[in-house]
């Protein structure tokens, strides 16, 4: 998932992206190091509350496009997931939408178990996890299906 999110940063004007779930867990991101974990966690928590709040007036939120003085935030909603992409104000939005569609297709093809494992990993105490780095590459052994870090999830 980290590699998938890194693909978004190849779009000119994109500063970084984040994948979070409806529990407010950050599953993967491609932000530079100065965006710390607390920042992304705070954003993920806001996302899960707001989408439910605007459900009635919109019939279901598909995408947010929010413009700020210094940047533009695009948030795509998926079933139980959010992709937030932070961009410069003058980003080519159509190119970003195309890239976002590619990323979404890749995420949808991921085994659901992989998402569950990633969610369980995020739910572990912070001290048990390695620091999150934007450019980290996932070691080969950990890419194997079914490999877990720490206690196995229960469901």
């Amino acid at each position: 998932m980290q590699t998938i999110m890194l693909g978004l940063t190849s779009v000119p004007g994109v500063m970084g992206g984040m994948l979070s779930d409806e529990q407010g867990n950050v599953l993967a991101h491609s932000f530079p190091p100065y965006f710390d974990a607390a920042t992304m966690k705070g954003a993920a928590d806001l996302l899960q509350d707001t989408t439910a709040g605007l459900q009635d007036v919109t019939g279901g939120v598909k995408l947010y496009d929010i413009r700020f003085e210094l940047g533009r935030l695009i948030i795509k909603t998926l079933p139980r997931l959010f992709i937030a992409v932070l961009c410069q104000p003058a980003v080519n939005i159509q190119l970003l939408y195309i890239s976002l569609n590619v990323v979404i297709k890749k995420i949808e093809k991921l085994p659901s178990e992989q998402l569950v494992l990633q969610t369980a990993k995020q739910a572990e105490p912070a001290s048990a996890q390695a620091p999150v780095k934007a450019s980290v590459s996932i070691p080969e052994p950990e890419k194997k299906f079914g490999k877990t870090l720490g206690p196995p999830p229960t469901w």
Binding site: F35, T39, G42, A43, L46, L47, D49, T50, G53, L54, V57, T58, G59, G60, V61, K62, L63, Y64, D65, I66, R67, F68, E69, L70, G71, L73, L86
Partner: peptide, 27 residues
């Protein structure tokens, strides 16, 4: 309020405009 909060979270300045693409209505 959501826009201001999330903008503050990322430190990207004042809120200017927002668009919500909805299934039945846009905002």
């Amino acid at each position: 309020l959501f826009s201001e909060q999330i903008g503050s979270q990322f430190g990207i300045g004042e809120f200017k405009a927002a668009t919500v693409h909805g299934s039945e209505h846009h905002l």
